[in-house]
Simulated assay, not measured.
Amino acid sequence: MSDRAPQPVERQLPTEEARDLLALVRELAQREIAPTAAGEEDAGHFPREVFALLSRSGLLGLVYDEEYGGGDQPYEVYLQVLEELASARLTVGLGVSVHTLACHALAAFGTKEQRAEYLPAMLGGGLLGAYCLSEPSSGSDAASLRTRAVRDGDDWVITGTKAWITHGGIADFYTVLARTGGEGARGITAFLVPGDAPGLSAAAPEHKMGMKGSPTAQVHFDGVRVPDTRRLGEEGQGFAVALSALDSGRLGIAACATGVAQAALDEALSYTAGRQQFGRPIADFQGLRFMIADMATQIEAGRALYLAAARLRDAGKPFSKEAAMAKLFCTDSAMRVTTDAVQLLGGYGYTADFPVERFMREAKVLQIVEGTNQIQRMVVARHLAGPESR
């Protein structure tokens, strides 16, 4: 085998500070995350100690205000941090993306008093968040959710079940969307629920084909009581809160997908440079070289697409269509790239002795989470051709 080390990605970054940050993240990822990733994923171990380190390092609140312990970084930089983390281990990269998503409702819609009380611990105090929107019977059709919050004096009482919750059962706080009014999008409100609230419990984690170190579970709310001071935004504003977070969350998934694809390409390059057949490295054979070229092109195109969407977001411009395009393209590309990486390694690619089979299993879930890629196509088409006729 070859000792060829993966070359750092040539990145377009806006400042010298951002370049230093990415160098720090890459060094941290290669030292603290990558070496144990395969074994811990196989064992189903969630690396809570890594998230504590990321919190102490200021990497769990990069896009939020310095006033509350955030990093005041643009999405253009934050997403490239996610890519580096996901390249080392998707459980970590996607976990940071989910945590950032869970903080969004408070940061964007909370009162100044709420932000001052809760955000510092969420961003840099070692806490870990989860985002509770999907339910057993409402995934893509999120506006049909059934979890209900009923007003009781100065409190709300939440009852229902959320499904497919990343960090379900281990999170310190949950951003929960619950129905407080009538049917449809206008009857939904957002709440910040502590992880140790009486009546909150989680089912056993789902048995998944990939990302076994990241717990995904149903979360049950059995009369969970939260004060009105933990309501985020206005009553009935919850669906708008959810949608405002999802566009940004889709960019996080796009960046994570690009990181997984880059890791697969790096592994394939290393293997094909060292594997000898017919007296020369298999990287010399044109058919394999063309596969490598296609893999690299898809990765670079995906990176450019998610960064273009991020720059629109940073400029305060609409980016919903571009976020859907980035999520769609980057995750489909990650599936193709990781599948090709397995093919390039031949029989070895199909074994757990090399990480590309894990990358392929992990890439699949990225086509599903944060809105399936079929939903992303609907979003893009709606922007281009208008809403569907009824």
Rank of each mutant, 00 (worst) to 15 (best):
S2K: 05
D3F: 12
R4T: 13
L13E: 10
E16D: 15
R19Y: 07
A23C: 11
L24N: 04
R31V: 12
T36M: 13
T36N: 05
P47K: 07
V50E: 09
F51R: 01
A52V: 08
A52T: 09
R56P: 00
S57N: 12
G61E: 03
G71C: 15
E76Y: 01
V77N: 02
Q80K: 09
A86M: 09
T91F: 03
G95I: 07
G95W: 13
G95C: 03
V98H: 00
G110V: 10
E113D: 06
A116I: 03
E117R: 15
A121E: 11
A121G: 09
G129W: 06
S134I: 02
A143C: 05
T147D: 02
V150W: 04
D154V: 15
G160C: 03
H167G: 07
G168K: 11
D172L: 10
Y174M: 12
A185Q: 14
A185H: 15
R186Y: 10
R186C: 02
T189D: 04
F191M: 10
H207M: 04
M209K: 08
M211K: 00
K212L: 08
S214H: 10
T216L: 15
Q218S: 12
V219W: 00
D228E: 15
T229K: 06
R231V: 00
E234M: 11
S244A: 14
S244V: 07
L246M: 13
S270A: 11
Y271L: 08
Q277M: 08
Q277L: 13
R280F: 14
A296S: 09
T297R: 15
A304N: 02
Y306D: 05
R311V: 01
K317I: 02
K317H: 13
S320A: 11
E322H: 10
A324L: 04
C330W: 01
T331W: 00
V337I: 05
L344F: 12
L345Y: 06
T351G: 11
V356G: 12
E357L: 14
L366V: 07
I375L: 15
L384A: 07
